[in-house]
């Protein structure tokens, strides 16, 4: 079927969202630790939920990636959120529910979900943002 100009533009928008991994995105980059430790601790459901939520909320600028062992195996599953300046927030002991909230608040609204970050670990209070 011949496409109207409007339809072509719609195709363009939609497809661009799908494939702009290749050009890099401006928004958050979310990295899930997916080494043996992470997977064992339940990183996969976290990753899947993360992707579902990102898609559901149409957060087109968000990149989801996985990484290897981040080094703090006892805190796995770990999800790290990098912003445009490469500053990062690290969420620990994640699960599907928690990650849904991170998407809803941090990725969608820019509000860091403090209680999931490393700031509460071991009773110490730390600034959740690590400068990149």
């Amino acid at each position: 079927m011949a496409k109207s100009l409007a339809e072509l533009k719609a195709i363009r928008e939609k497809k661009l969202n799908e494939i702009n991994l290749r050009h890099g995105k401006d928004g958050y980059r979310v990295v899930v630790g997916m080494a043996t430790c992470g997977i064992a601790a339940g990183a996969r459901p976290v990753m899947v939920k993360l992707m579902e939520e990102v898609e559901a909320k149409n957060l087109v600028d968000v990149t989801v990636a996985q990484t290897g062992c981040i080094g703090s195996c006892r805190l796995e599953p770990i999800v790290e959120v990098y912003d445009g300046n490469n500053d990062k927030v690290t969420y620990v002991h994640m699960n599907a529910e928690k990650v849904a909230r991170v998407v809803a608040e941090h990725l969608a609204q820019g509000k860091i979900v403090d209680e999931y970050t490393m700031t509460v670990v071991d009773g110490k209070l730390i600034d959740p943002t690590v400068k990149g």
């Binding site: 799908e18 494939i19 991994l21 990102v54 990149t63």
Partner: peptide, 10 residues
């Protein structure tokens, strides 16, 4: 799922 976290270009 339409959302792809990774793309492999060959």
């Amino acid at each position: 799922m339409a959302y792809k976290r990774s793309q492999i270009l060959i």
